[in-house]
């Protein structure tokens, strides 16, 4: 078997293990939260369901069985790809997630692309240039130390309420995406741009940069053709972190901007103790992380030929 296939196979097994662990933790977590799931299904405490109704619900959802049995049933369903039905929405979890996934993916990918672009431009332009670097550092400091909800609120205040450039709420196509994108972008761009600049500066100090200059290469050529690729390596490593920031940020941004999306789904599911939906979202996050990290590992080898020699 070629090494790459063997590596992918091993990776898949590891991912499966991670998913199992994530599902188990989600299952246990929701059971450990105080309160009665049957009451949640019945519509919460305010719904004041009778004990008979609650019993019926318990029987229907299998909540009266011992925990290990419930766990076994839960795993069995998962293996068949059945995430169950949402307690609150009376809808299959799979379709709840797929309905909302598009909006969130658009948000996250847009922010990632913007963040990487901003970081690359800032890093390339300010590396090794003390004054520009000082300015960029001030920006990065603000970006890193300001929480996402506050950035979002400030952007809303400035551009929506004050300048009326963008809609305050809702899904008005691209215009409605701009401020959420910016909010998420700013939450990751600071760190990414710091790392990019450091990478570029480190590369520019290496002998090969001097060699390139001694060949008559322009400063732009040295930075773009040589240094940037070296800077990409640490940035790639950080992309996994950036993804986590984005997933967390999505929840905040969707709340602040009142947007549809996975973030909203998960907030209401946790509040309503909607176990199947929470589990579904947790698994989705785990799958995303695992796949993206696998992709990053492959990308790493693509960017750095020296990595290809390292055993897979």
């Amino acid at each position: 078997m070629p090494p790459l296939a063997r590596w992918l196979l091993r990776r898949s097994a590891q991912i499966a293990l991670v998913l199992w662990g994530a599902a188990t933790l989600a299952f246990l977590g929701m059971r450990l939260v105080p309160g009665d799931p049957a009451r949640a299904i019945a519509g919460g405490v305010q719904a004041s369901a009778t004990p008979a109704v609650l019993d019926a619900i318990r029987a229907q959802y299998g909540l009266d069985r011992p925990l290990p049995v419930q766990y076994a049933i839960f795993l069995g369903r998962l293996l068949r790809g059945d995430l169950g039905r949402s307690y609150q929405l009376n809808q299959a979890v799979g379709s709840v997630i797929t309905e909302q996934l598009g909006a969130t993916v658009a948000l996250a990918i847009g922010a990632m692309v913007l963040g990487l672009t901003l970081a690359t431009v800032l890093g390339l332009l300010t590396a090794g240039r003390p004054r520009a670097r000082a300015l960029a550092r001030a920006f990065e400091f603000c970006s890193i130390s300001t929480p996402g909800f506050w950035i979002g609120t400030l952007l809303l205040g400035a551009f929506s309420f004050h300048l009326h450039w963008f809609p305050v709420l809702g899904e008005d196509g691209l215009a409605g995406l701009v401020l959420p994108w910016l909010t998420l972008t700013l939450s990751i761009a600071g760190v990414l741009s710091q790392v990019t600049r450091e990478g570029v500066e480190h590369a520019l100090e290496q002998p090969f940069a001097l060699t390139a200059r001694s060949r008559g290469a322009t400063e732009n050529r040295v930075r773009l053709r040589h240094a940037l690729r070296h800077a990409a390596l640490p940035v790639l490593t950080l992309s996994g972190w950036a993804l986590g920031e984005l997933l967390g940020g999505v929840v905040v941004v969707e709340t602040v901007f009142a947007r549809q999306g996975i973030g909203q789904v998960v907030v209401s599911a946790v509040q309503g103790r909607d176990l199947p939906v929470v589990t579904g979202v947790v698994l989705l996050a785990a799958v995303t992380f695992a796949l993206i990290n696998t992709g990053l590992d492959l990308l790493y080898r693509l960017v750095d030929p020296r990595m290809r020699q390292v055993a897979l």
Partner: peptide, 24 residues
């Protein structure tokens, strides 16, 4: 200067591992 470098004057650094861009 750039027209001179590499064109009229070639420059060979020591440590060829670091002096050739390892990613190219």
């Amino acid at each position: 200067w750039r027209r001179l470098r590499g064109r009229r004057i070639g420059y060979v650094l020591q440590d060829a591992l670091g002096s050739l861009d390892p990613l190219r």
